[in-house]
């Protein structure tokens, strides 16, 4: 019983950052931007979350700092890719490097450490206990007592779906990606939609980063995102950007993430258990590629 609850809570914790980053990325995906900067945005956010929380001893300030940190990258992205028309792929790669370099630099500069920074003064984001539901066996310990960001991620998924498919903003957003010329000629600037989608993406990646450094653990480590931004990109591609599909895929990755930790307690060495989510991504990609091929064959 405890094992099942442990696996499920591990799955939720592993899925949350990927889900949030992928939701942010999918907004830019619909707007027709090839955005691969989620990794960098998350990393920046994770660092600034720790910085804000450390300086003001408040997780709320940490959260705001996190969003601001991701926003810095989004603004640079906008400046280069939308204003100067630099290639999006190049901009994304450079920004990921910039995030890695500057967080490593700032870690050394502000906290005077290399590698990992942790402190008792960092206030982590609280877990939320829901009264009544908490008491239900099996369901209670899973639904209640999760980190605040986890609940935010659930709300964000529904919000994203509603935003993209049910609002005027979402219609314009999809039009920007689908046919930017017709959007422009109908009097809505495509670049404006793209800018807004990038800023929203930064908010989501900010939450994802804050969860990593103030929820999942309470510390900042160099390159602590460890490819989660890339996995979130894979998740977007696998379900063509649909928010509910992303949630499902994220949970799947979360499951394998948790499974890795679980196997570790059975004596499998940590290097192999850490590979599990990446191998799972390859597996998901295989399924996707096969489905695509079959669809093509049917179309012929």
């Amino acid at each position: 019983m405890n094992i099942i609850v442990g696996l499920i809570t591990g799955m939720i914790a592993g899925a949350t950052p990927i889900l949030l980053a992928a939701l942010g990325g999918t907004l830019t995906f619909y707007a027709g931007i090839f955005n691969i900067a989620m990794e960098g945005m998350m990393l920046m956010a994770a660092f600034f979350a720790v910085l804000g929380s450390f300086l003001f001893h408040s997780w709320l300030v940490g959260l705001l700092f996190a969003v601001a940190g991701a926003m810095i990258l989004a603004l640079i992205f906008i400046f280069f890719s939308v204003t100067l028309n630099t290639d999006e792929f190049v901009t994304g790669i450079a920004l990921n490097l910039f995030a890695l370099g500057s967080t490593t630099y700032l870690l050394r500069q502000i906290f005077k450490v290399k590698g990992v920074f942790t402190s008792k003064l960092i206030d982590s984001i609280p877990n939320i206990h829901i009264p009544l539901i908490e008491k239900i066996p099996l369901l209670g310990p899973v639904v209640s007592g999760r980190n605040l960001i986890v609940y935010l991620a659930v709300i964000a998924t529904i919000f994203c779906y509603y935003l993209v498919f049910k609002t005027r903003f979402g219609l314009r957003l999809r039009a920007a990606g689908y046919n930017s010329n017709s959007l422009d000629s109908s009097g809505v600037r495509t670049s404006r939609m793209q800018i807004q989608s990038l800023l929203l993406c930064a908010v989501f990646c900010g939450l994802a980063g804050a969860f990593l450094s103030l929820g999942y653990v309470t510390l900042f480590a160099e390159n602590m995102t460890a490819g989660r931004g890339w996995i979130s990109l894979a998740a977007i591609i696998l379900v063509d950007g649909h928010p509910y599909g992303i949630a499902l895929i994220s949970l799947l990755f979360g499951f394998f993430d948790g499974l890795g930790l679980f196997l570790q307690s059975y004596g499998v060495s940590s290097q192999f258990t850490s590979m599990v989510p990446y191998i799972a991504t390859l597996g998901a990609l295989y399924v996707y590629a096969r489905r695509n091929r079959e669809r093509e064959r049917k179309a012929l």
């Binding site: 460890a226 490819g227 890339w230 990109l233 894979a234 591609i237 060495s269 290097q271 192999f272 850490s274 590979m275 990446y278 191998i279 991504t281 390859l282 990609l285 295989y286 590629a289 096969r290 695509n292 091929r293």
Partner: peptide
């Protein structure tokens, strides 16, 4: 063989190679 995009595959293989070599030199 399967039409899997090399873009994501190579990225994932990077991670796997990283952990694999880390294991090889640790055990």
């Amino acid at each position: 063989a399967f039409g899997m995009s090399e873009f994501i595959v190579t990225l994932m293989l990077n991670m796997i190679a990283d952990f694999f070599t880390a294991w090889a030199i640790a055990y």
